[in-house]
Each structure stands twice: as structure tokens, then as C-alpha cells.
Design a binder for these strands. Structure first.
Length: 559
RNA sequence: AGUCCCAUGGUGUAAUGGUAGCACUGCACAUUUUGGUUGUGUAUGUCUAGGUUCGAGUCCUGGUGGGACUACCA
């Protein structure tokens, strides 16, 4: 810590709290965090931020980080989600020190509830949900005590025991803390601690008829595990006094500190589990792992790397301010990573046939291409060239625009790693659509340079017509047309981008034939693409992860 | 409306009373067999009014703006 030579790196506010605690010798200088998802949905990029923070803090301060499933609500939770969550955390590159479930502590939490009753700090309430609302008061008006608040401790004990045994139907009784119905903090107005719920729990089965509420279970779980810093999002700020009240009143062995930070918001998407669930259930997307989803599994299928997601999470920072992160930062993170790692390859998305009239018919030659200019160790490969090739439709303009240096009538361009070609003739169909180009090539420019020193401004990609292979390519765009689809007055589903997915058939170079699912490539000049799990030995399927930055598109916009 | 939280370029995030910095984005130039990458430059900022201080983005007070809370969800 006393590096005098190194520049002091700035700390986020949570690191500052931790370093202060360490300096004061709090918690025997132990740092123990946890990532506590409820297993009722898939993890999204917002969870990734929390994961990177919690596990990162543990690593940075030589502490520990637990994975804890917050499974106190048997109605919504399921094993399917547990497995997906474990898988996502591991994929992101983290290993938890211990795995727990809130349900591991059901007996302990129950015992704490009994203790609370004995301390005369909790009572069994008989008010209906509707009556509860009435007694609860509002933000401006105080609530009033439940008529059942003064039951004897013995009666409360008996009732709570019978609640547990299943003697009463759901909703009949509720265990509540005795705090203060006039508190300006609504969460202090005799909050619910335990409710009757005769539901099968995916872990504890039918063992329990009562389940603890979040507020009661969370702080106790943290205390039981010896968590020192319990990080959550801003909306739990008003719960903190209750969190502390519970652990202090029950004199738990450790007193974890709850710290709140702002959640991550991303432009052009939604981040709440409820809304993501809706997109899945109503089939607006193909599933939780649809490549348009902001879920960890969706991003992974889209071609995002764990490294890029971690970098992104570091870059967005930690604070208590409401924020809206521009997706371009996410896109920057994946481009940065894939630029270093992804092998280059040529693929034509929207093919236009080109016949090189002075190239010998039937001849095929292999030309050397660099796999990754950013990484010499990636080596080289051979790509076949022949008389008939495909180029990108967008790389030809019959009437060239200003600053256009791709192919045009009479213009000369370089075919990447191949030859200089000059467009001699345009062939159109009856409707006037350009269907083919006739070009001539300069045999002396093999490899892409002319011995006479002649320069061309444009270099375009191509695929040999006879050797190229067809592939399905899924082009993804943002899922919503609005920056903040869930902040406006219209329903967020009305803002779904109807063109968020375009499926095309592209022609790619033959080296891709055996490409494995999950592997990423850069299609030169087009973007990063990864092989989708839907690929079969006879049908390649690619997902476009992200386009390359497109300087020409910007120039074209201005013309 | 009450209580609590927050306020720094277009977007995020630093500066712990002492030169407002970094990243993304935008723009410009250079380099380039990817209009990619890389490099260089540039534009834009402390919500407001007072106060404390030699000195305030930072501390204090008021205002304004935004957010959270009012579930037998988490």
C-alpha cells in the first residue's frame, strides 16, 4: 500500500470505505463480499457489473466472495436459473469461495424469528393484506398499530409455531417486527418478516410452510456468512436501517455493512428481469440467450468475450449517481478485445458477381493472406482466387460519389491480397439492376502491389465464386428504437425495433468450413462475427457481434 | 406531500481545501494492402444563490433539478 514510486490510483467510493475499514482494523481486517442473485431469471450485464465489483474487491483486498442464491420466494425460483447463474459467473472468469443458499439458513432464520418474538420485538398479525395497507399509512401520514400487536409472547410463539406446522392457509397470519408505525421510513412500520406460503421450494421441498421476507433473510444470511461489505443497489438504501436493526437487535455474531451503489443502465435496451422475462415469454426474442438480449448468455452468444464484458464493467465505474451508459462503450470494449484476438477472414455479405475477363478460365491459384495484422503469431493462410469472384454490392458505385475510392466504371482498386482490377463493363438485368461486373486485372500486381509503383486508394474484399461457401448470417441491430424504452409513456414493447434481426445468406472464404461454434472472426472491413450454435456441418450460421467502425458511412452521410 | 439519496464536458468517471484529469463519443490531421488498427491534435464541464477560507468542484445554508420509498417480491 505504501508505494511511493507508483502513482496512487484513484479509488471508487466503495474501495475508499474498505480501505478506511482496513486502516481502522474493522472486522479483524477481513474483507468478505457476496454476489446474491435470486434464481428467478438469467443474469444480465447489470449483474455482471455487480459480479466484477464483488469478486474484484475480494481479489484486490485478499478477501473472499461467496455466491449465494437468495431463494426465499418459492413461487418464482427454479433450479434452471441456478445452473444458468453458476455457468455465467464462471464464464465471466470468477470462482466463488463458497456457495450458499438463503434456504440453507431457513432453520437458523426461523430460530432468530423465535428469538425476536421472545424479545418482544415481533408479533403475529392477522390483518388482511388490504387492512394492512390501510394501517400502514402513507409517506405523509403515520400508520397505526395493528390491533394484534399486543398479543402475549406466549401466544405469538404458539401461533408462529403453528404457522410453521402448516395449520393455517396462506395469508392468514403474518409475522411482523415491532418497530414504529409512525416512522417516516416506511420500512420501519412493523415490517413483515415471515409469511405463510404453502409452496414447493426447489431445494427444501415441502419442508417449510413459512418463508422469510428479503429484509429478514438477507441481513441474517450476510451475518451468518461473516460478510463484511454487503453491496446492493440504490433502491435498498431505505432498507438499510432495517438491515441494521435486525442484526443489532438479534446481536448476530458479525455486523455486515450494507453499501448501496447505482445500477447500470444501458441505452437502447431494458434491464429489469421482469421486462426481459416478458420479451422471452411473449416471443419478442428467441430466448434468454437471444443475441439481442443484454443478458450474459445473450452477449456470449452474440460473440462478446468475458474479457470485454469485464473491461466494460471496469470502465463504467462505481458511484451513487443515476446513470445511462451509451452502448457505444460496450461496443468499444468488444471491438478492442476482438481486434487483438480475432482472425481475419473474407466474407461477402451482399454479393455482386465480378468476372475477370483476362484471367484464364478454369484457373485457381492460392494467395497468401495475413491472419491478424495485430498478431504476427496468428500466421498466414492461403485463399483461392479465380476468374469469377464476388465482391460487396456496396463496394461498387456506377456514378462514384465524392471521395469514393472503391470500384466504379473505369476505376482501379486492389482486391485484398490479390490483384489490381479495373472495372470495364456493367451488366444489368431487364429491371436495370446491376447483376454483374466485367473487370480486367493486372497480372503484375499479384499479392496487391504493382511493380511500377502505381497506387490505388481502395482495397476491397472478395471471395472466389467457385470455392466460396454459403453461410447464413444474422445481422443484429439494437433491440429498441428508443434510448430509454422503459422511461417513456408508451409501453416499452411498442418501441421494439422491427429490424433488430436481418437474416442473409453470405459467401465466405473456404477456410471457414470447419469453424466451431462460439469462435469469432473478423470479416475484413465488415465487422466481427461468431459461429452460432445453430451451425451444422452443412450449414454455417454466423452472428454479427458488432460492425467495424465505418468511416465511409460517416463521409457518405455528409455528402 | 413526508423521509432519504444524488448533482463535474454529449456519456460515464476522477480530483479527499491548492493546476478540473481519464475513457467513450464527436471533429480534424497523419499512418495504413481493412475508409479497420495506431498516433497526434481539437471541441465541449464543476446546477444555482449566498456563506466560511489566502484559496471551494470539494465544507456550510437556502433554492432548483433528478431518483428511491408507500408489496405477505427481491
Amino acid at each position: 500500500m505504501e508505494e511511493t514510486t507508483e502513482e496512487k490510483k484513484s479509488l471508487n467510493f466503495i474501495e475508499q470505505i474498505i480501505e478506511n475499514d482496513l486502516a481502522e482494523g474493522k472486522n479483524e481486517k477481513r474483507i468478505h463480499t457476496r454476489f446474491p442473485p435470486e434464481p428467478n431469471g438469467y443474469l444480465h450485464i447489470g449483474h455482471a457489473k455487480s459480479i466484477v465489483l464483488n469478486f474484484g474487491l475480494a481479489t484486490k483486498y485478499a478477501g473472499k466472495c461467496n455466491l449465494r442464491f437468495d431463494d426465499t420466494n418459492p413461487e418464482t425460483e427454479d433450479e434452471e436459473y441456478v445452473n444458468a447463474i453458476r455457468n455465467d459467473v464462471k464464464w465471466l472468469g470468477f470462482q466463488w469461495d463458497a456457495e450458499f443458499n438463503a434456504s440453507d439458513y431457513f432453520q437458523k432464520i426461523y430460530d432468530y424469528a423465535v428469538q425476536l418474538i421472545k424479545l418482544d420485538k415481533a408479533f403475529v398479525c392477522e390483518l388482511s393484506a388490504e387492512q394492512m395497507r390501510e394501517y400502514h399509512g402513507t409517506a405523509v401520514t403515520p400508520g397505526k398499530d395493528s390491533p394484534y400487536k399486543n398479543r402475549s409472547i406466549e401466544e405469538n410463539l404458539d401461533l408462529f409455531d403453528r404457522m410453521r406446522k402448516g395449520e393455517f392457509p396462506d395469508g392468514k397470519y403474518l409475522l411482523r417486527a415491532k418497530i414504529d408505525m409512525a416512522s417516516p421510513n416506511m420500512h420501519f412500520r412493523d415490517p413483515a418478516l415471515y409469511r405463510i406460503r404453502k409452496k414447493h421450494h426447489y431445494r427444501t421441498g415441502d419442508q417449510w410452510n413459512v418463508y422469510p421476507m428479503y429484509d429478514f433473510a438477507h441481513g441474517l444470511s450476510d451475518a451468518i456468512e461473516g460478510i463484511t461489505h454487503s453491496i446492493c443497489t440504490l433502491e435498498f438504501e431505505v432498507h438499510r436501517p432495517l438491515y441494521e436493526w435486525i442484526n443489532n437487535t438479534l446481536q448476530t455474531p458479525t455486523r455486515p455493512q450494507q453499501i448501496e451503489m447505482s445500477r447500470l443502465n444501458l441505452t437502447y435496451t431494458v434491464m429489469s428481469k421482469r421486462k426481459l422475462m416478458q420479451l422471452v415469454n411473449e416471443k419478442h426474442v428467441s430466448g434468454w440467450d437471444d443475441p439481442r438480449m443484454p443478458t450474459v448468455s445473450g452477449l456470449r452468444r452474440r460473440g462478446y468475450t468475458a474479457q470485454a464484458i469485464r473491461e466494460f464493467c471496469e470502465r463504467v465505474g462505481i458511484s451513487k449517481r443515476e446513470n445511462l451508459i451509451d452502448v457505444s462503450l460496450l461496443e468499444f470494449s468488444i471491438r478492442e478485445d476482438l481486434n487483438k484476438k480475432a482472425p481475419r477472414v473474407m466474407g461477402v455479405l451482399h454479393p455482386l458477381k465480378v468476372v475477370i475477363t483476362n484471367y484464364p478460365e478454369g484457373q485457381v491459384e492460392e494467395l497468401e493472406a495475413v491472419n491478424n495484422p495485430e498478431d504476427e503469431s496468428a500466421g498466414k493462410r492461403m485463399v483461392p482466387f479465380s476468374r469469377e469472384i464476388y465482391i460487396e454490392q456496396d463496394d461498387f458505385l456506377e456514378v462514384p460519389a465524392k471521395k469514393w475510392f472503391r470500384l466504379a466504371p473505369g476505376a482501379e482498386v486492389r482486391l485484398r491480397y490479390a490483384y489490381f482490377v479495373t472495372c470495364q463493363e456493367i451488366i444489368k438485368d431487364a429491371a436495370g439492376k446491376i447483376v454483374e461486373l466485367r473487370c480486367t486485372y493486372d497480372p503484375a500486381s499479384r499479392g496487391g502491389n504493382s511493380p511500377d509503383g502505381r497506387k490505388v486508394k481502395g482495397t476491397i474484399h472478395w471471395v472466389s465464386a467457385s470455392e466460396g461457401i454459403g453461410a447464413q448470417v444474422r445481422l443484429y441491430d439494437r433491440l429498441f428504437t428508443h434510448e430509454t424504452p422503459d422511461k417513456g409513456e408508451v409501453d416499452f414493447k411498442e418501441l421494439i425495433n422491427p429490424n433488430s434481426l436481418e437474416v442473409i445468406t453470405a459467401i465466405v472464404e473456404p477456410s471457414l468450413k470447419l469453424a466451431q461454434a462460439g469462435v469469432s472472426f473478423q470479416f475484413e472491413r465488415m465487422g466481427y462475427f461468431c459461429v452460432d450454435k445453430d451451425s451444422t456441418p452443412t450449414q454455417l450460421v454466423f452472428n454479427r457481434t458488432v460492425t467495424l467502425k465505418d468511416a465511409w458511412a460517416k463521409i457518405a452521410e455528409k455528402i
